[in-house]
């Protein structure tokens, strides 16, 4: 990551219009930020250009300028963060939240005789299933199929919501981030691609599935559970990065090859 050619690739993918290099050189640009060897400039005609060592490496439709960085919009819920440290590809908050949801109650399935490319989410909560669908739509401009699973019980009909999206591109895009699997319960936050905003969004998504807040012993506590200890360790690091003070990992249930673990986070303020 961070090489000129990689950025050119994004630039190529997201360049606006059909302008040639000569035509662009005739345009007027305002330098909006210089970060190390990178320079971000805004065209008077619209759009942004990223230069490395004076050489244009990409053009972008949107940019967010902050004190210590510039965030350039790529596609599929990705952004390019330019800072003094260089460049890195980061997830937009929407995509980060989607990854958190998939890590807790969803999954990615690529396989089968007929080669199925499926990204799914299972929840009893209709609202949460709706959040998954709307995030898929916002990030990938794709409408998910909202399946429901109903079961007749002696207490009446019970429903589970199972939105799914079938797309090779989306399945591989998420698979490449390494967020889920290969074991069904295994997850890894894409920490290298998350800024603080992304981390908060990821935790929000994960918490919606596998977390809870409760008041015990006179205090409010935020709990996150998982059967994947390694993933939970990585979540713990994220909490620390965001200034929280999570507990150690508590093992609540243990069997050979299976355990259910938990971390607790103390909430200072009343909710």
């Amino acid at each position: 990551m961070g090489s000129g050619s990689r950025i050119k690739q994004y630039g190529g993918r997201f360049s606006q219009g059909e302008q040639t290099r000569e035509e662009r050189e005739e345009e007027a640009f305002n330098i909006i930020k210089v970060l190390g060897e990178y320079e971000v400039r805004e065209s008077e005609g619209g759009g942004y250009e990223l230069l490395k060592g004076g050489e244009a490496v990409g053009t972008f439709s949107e940019a967010r300028v902050e004190m210590e960085r510039v965030v350039l919009k790529l596609g599929r819920g990705m952004n390019l963060e330019v800072s003094e440290k260089g460049v890195r590809e980061i997830l937009s908050p929407k995509k980060a939240e989607l990854c958190g949801l998939i890590a807790s109650d969803g999954g990615i399935y690529i396989g089968g005789k007929k080669k199925i490319y499926e990204v799914y989410f299972d929840s009893k909560d209709e609202e949460l299933a709706g959040v998954f669908s709307s995030l898929i739509e916002e990030v990938y401009s794709k409408i998910s199929r909202d399946h429901t699973y109903s079961q007749e019980t002696r207490e009446g009909e019970k429903i589970y919501h199972k939105p799914r999206v079938y797309s090779k591109g989306i399945a591989y895009d998420l698979e490449d981030l390494g967020i889920k699997g290969p074991e069904p319960f295994e997850f890894h936050p894409p920490s290298d691609h998350l800024d603080d905003e992304g981390k908060r969004a990821y935790l929000k998504g994960f918490f919606s599935g596998d977390g809870n807040i409760s008041k015990s012993w006179g205090e409010y506590w935020f709990r996150v559970y998982s059967t994947c200890r390694e993933g939970l360790d990585e979540l713990r690091e994220m909490f620390i990065d965001l200034g929280f003070h999570p507990s150690d990992i508590h093992v609540k249930y243990r069997e050979p090859k299976r355990e259910i673990c938990m971390i607790l986070v103390f909430l200072k303020k009343s909710i």
Partner: peptide
């Protein structure tokens, strides 16, 4: 092996 998620009961 299950979890009741509102209260975090294993």
């Amino acid at each position: 092996l299950a979890r009741e998620r509102n209260e975090g009961i294993i």
